Simulated assay, not measured.
Amino acid sequence: MSLPEVTIKDGTLTADPELRFTQGGKAVASMNIANNSRRKNQQTGQWEDGDATFLRCSIWGDYAEHVAETLTKGSKVIGTGVLKQRSYEKDGQNRTVLEVELYEIGPSLRFATARIDRGQSSGSTQAADPWGSNDTPDW
């Protein structure tokens, strides 16, 4: 059984991506993406924002470093990934959260322009095994 795939379009970063490294040295960037529905008010003819949904997202490897260097608070983005459930303990209580593990994210060119720098890639941007062997984030 595969995990549910999620595509976020017209999302907005609520803060700069936070870059961290696992104890094994693997990069992970964490971010919150806000997204809301829009509809046209038939009486006024104006577009109105609906309720906002905030998604906690992460991306791994070289891609994480590229995201942290490129995207900033307020950036309009498009992202695709899988929805995952994660459990942890905080203040003696067990907690469970849903997160999107992104395998693709970039600026939405619907709202801006972007310049692409084609740097060298080490090929480790795939998110197939983001934790690596016995590697967990040190947050």
Rank of each mutant, 00 (worst) to 15 (best):
V77F: 08
Q85T: 12
N94S: 11
A127E: 06
G81L: 04
G119Q: 07
R56C: 07
A52S: 14
P137K: 00
S58N: 08
D91N: 15
S121E: 10
K9I: 15
S75G: 01
R38L: 00
K84F: 05
I59W: 05
G106Y: 07
R86S: 08
P17Y: 03
Q126S: 15
N36E: 06
M1P: 13
A114R: 04
D135T: 03
N35Y: 03
S58Q: 10
G79E: 03
E65W: 02
A52F: 05
T113Q: 12
Q42V: 05
A27F: 06
R110P: 02
N36T: 06
Q42W: 09
Q85P: 01
V82A: 08
E104R: 11
K76G: 02
I116A: 14
A27W: 04
H66P: 00
Y103I: 00
G45H: 07
G123D: 08
W139N: 12
H66Q: 06
T7F: 00
G61S: 05
D10Y: 09
E99H: 05
D10C: 14
N32A: 09
Q23N: 14
S58I: 08
K26H: 09
M31E: 01
L83V: 09
I105H: 02
K9H: 15
R110E: 14
I116V: 12
D117F: 11
N36W: 04
L55E: 06
E104P: 00
T70F: 05
G81N: 03
R95L: 12
F54Q: 04
Y63N: 02
A112C: 14
D135E: 12
T12W: 01
D62T: 08
T113F: 03
L55W: 11
T53H: 10
D51C: 03
D129C: 01
K90R: 14
E48T: 04
D10N: 15
Q42I: 07
E48N: 05
E89T: 12
N94V: 08
D16K: 09
P17T: 00
R39P: 02
S87N: 13
G119F: 05
K40W: 00
E89H: 07
L109Q: 10
G81T: 08
